[in-house]
Amino acid sequence: MGTGRLYAAVAAGGFRRYATYRTATAAGVFTNTVFGVILAYTYLALWHERPHLGGYDQAQALTYVWIGQALLVVVSVMGGGFEDELMERIRTGDIAIDLYRPADLQLWWLAGDLGRALFQLLARGVIPMAAGALLFPLALPTRPGTWLAFLVAVVLGTVVSFAIRFLIALTAFWLMDGAGVAQVSWITATFCSGMLLPLNVFPGVLGEIVRALPWASLIQAPADILLGAADPLTVYARQLLWAAALLTAGRLLQSAATRRVVVVGG
């Protein structure tokens, strides 16, 4: 099997694996919609007080809420992707088997995670967004090109998110209990991704810092493209930079970890 075909198969596996949980998916769509409604009203109140806060008008602010709900699971802001399994494999030592597989560890898990993300985008992205559009006046673009540009940013965002979670998961090689690190990770992601509030609403220096961090690639970056609030190329450049840097860091950590496994004899 060609390398490309192998990873495509892994991605398809990731997709199918999540596609089997129908009830859970339906329940998740419902939850995203409920939270979307609640947040939409709080944003309405906020933009009612400050009509052009963060450079968004009211419709853009509402759209931002639903983008957030649509992408929350896709880019795994709060975890729940491959990392739990990878950590478990490291903890139990099964990782040794993965390391001797004729496939690259990082690419293998990335392919699976992209498959998962695609399923989540179709199932848990589209429906809440449609519900939001029905319930609130959203500022959705009409040009297909904008949607396409948005999707590219979503893919890049997922890759950045993957790269972060891969690093987190690898800490399990050194730490007995990865749960704490994972928790710190999702708290940071929630705060810095724009899930809580658009990052351009964050005041002063704090705003500048969070906008420069990698987590901005997850929600804020795709949202800005869909809302026409940022130039796609600039956004991509930043996402690519973070993706490259974090994936490289992941590789370095992986090879350090591999050496460790070899030494320990696991």
């Binding site: 949980y21 129908r22 009830t23 859970a24 339906a26 329940a27 998740g28 419902f30 939850t31 409920v34 939270f35 409604v37 609640i38 009203y41 709080t42 309405l44 109140a45």
Partner: peptide, 30 residues
């Protein structure tokens, strides 16, 4: 519905989030 624990989250976590804001923020029907 055994896989529907997330529906419960809508009412528990969702409910507590809703109640953190003033009622005047939300639509009358809600």
């Amino acid at each position: 519905a055994q896989d529907a624990s997330e529906v419960q989250n809508s009412f528990t976590y969702g409910g507590q989030t809703l109640l953190q804001y003033p009622p005047s923020v939300f639509a009358k029907d809600l």
